[in-house]
């Protein structure tokens, strides 16, 4: 089951541990320090648990994970590959 935008917004808000301003698909999550790298571990384990695939070492990058939009694109692409 792919992750939804709502799930990711909830995750980011919880992990931020304080008020989060405007949060859209392009808001930088880790490079901006909005959430820390421990939260990246939680994010990846959540992706693996929910989407039933293992995130490869080469896929752990800010190109794939630094915004809600990037995460959704990454998850959708990997889920599509899995489905083939």
């Amino acid at each position: 089951m792919p992750l939804t935008r709502e799930q990711l917004v909830k995750f980011v808000k919880e992990k931020a541990g304080g008020p989060v301003g405007a949060l859209d698909d392009d808001t930088a999550l880790f490079s901006s320090g909005l959430i820390d790298s421990f939260s990246m571990v939680d994010l990846i384990t959540a992706i693996e648990r929910e989407c039933k695939f293992r995130v490869a070492a080469t896929d752990v990058s800010l190109d794939n994970l630094d915004s809600i939009g990037k995460i959704l694109r990454f998850v959708n692409a990997r889920t599509a590959v899995q489905a083939k």
Binding site: S31, T45, S61
Partner: peptide, 21 residues
């Protein structure tokens, strides 16, 4: 196994941030 996977991911997360910087 889960703890070790999390440890591995924490190293990868640090590397990802360092690479981007």
């Amino acid at each position: 196994a889960v703890a070790l996977r999390r440890y591995e991911l924490s190293l990868l997360a640090q590397r990802a941030k360092l690479t981007a910087r």
